[in-house]
Every structure is written in structure tokens, then in C-alpha cells.
Design a protein around this nucleic acid. Sequence first.
DNA 1: CTAGTGACTGTTT
DNA 2: AAAACAGCCACTA
Length: 113
Amino acid sequence: MSTAETSYERIYAAVRKIPRGKVTTYGAIARMAGLDRQARLVGYALSALRDGTALPWHRVINAQGRLSLEHAGRSSGLTQRLRLEREGVVVDAGGRVSLARFGWKVRAPRKSI
DNA sequence: CTAGTGACTGTTT
DNA sequence: AAAACAGCCACTA
């Protein structure tokens, strides 16, 4: 079809690229999808996902390093936290993740810790 | 068509 | 540190 890929498709594709054990922000996903200022759209696209999706949506958190789902009063917040911890991502009691440590960076890691 | 809302972000008070 | 404002876009009524 001549129909161009929707923003959703691009967003999903970007989310799929997040490596296991890492997290990224909505803004970063939007940027990867070529929608640099549509972080909100990313959240909206993810909200449209169904249960059982193969998309690693749990690796997407907000720029404050916090799980937006918990803050939004979603029951899926617990699921996200569980999945992250299962991948080795440390989630604080307040639902916070250290972006400095687990934030997905396209740049190469430091040669020394 | 308009108006309201949202899994956001960055800047300014 | 917390709240308010503005910006951006898609979906629903």
C-alpha cells in the first residue's frame, strides 16, 4: 500500500530495539521513531497495546526514571516492575530506575567502570 | 468541524 | 523539590 507507516509502527519498531536489561524513555523512543517531540504519542501508542503483546513496553519509562504506569494508577505497573526486575533492572521502592545505570545508550559504554 | 484528554518532556516559578 | 505552563499529536465524543 502507498500508505506510509503510521507513527505507531515506527514507535513499536523502536521499542523492539531496546536491548534486554535496559530501559529507555518515551522521549528517546519518539526521537528514534523520528518524532522527536511526540513523547506523548509514544505513551498513547503503548496504551493501545493489548495484553500479551510481544513488544517490550515495560522497558519504556519516563524521563524522570519512574514507571509512569504506577503513577497513572494502572495495575500493569506491577507487571512492568516484575518484568524489569526479571531482566536484572533494579527498581526502587518508589518505582524509580537509575537511568544512569540502566538507561539504554546507543553510545559505547565506558571502557572502565 | 470543535473540545477534551492522555503510559510525556523541558523550562520556568 | 514540587507545581505550573507550554508544546506536540492522535483518538474519542
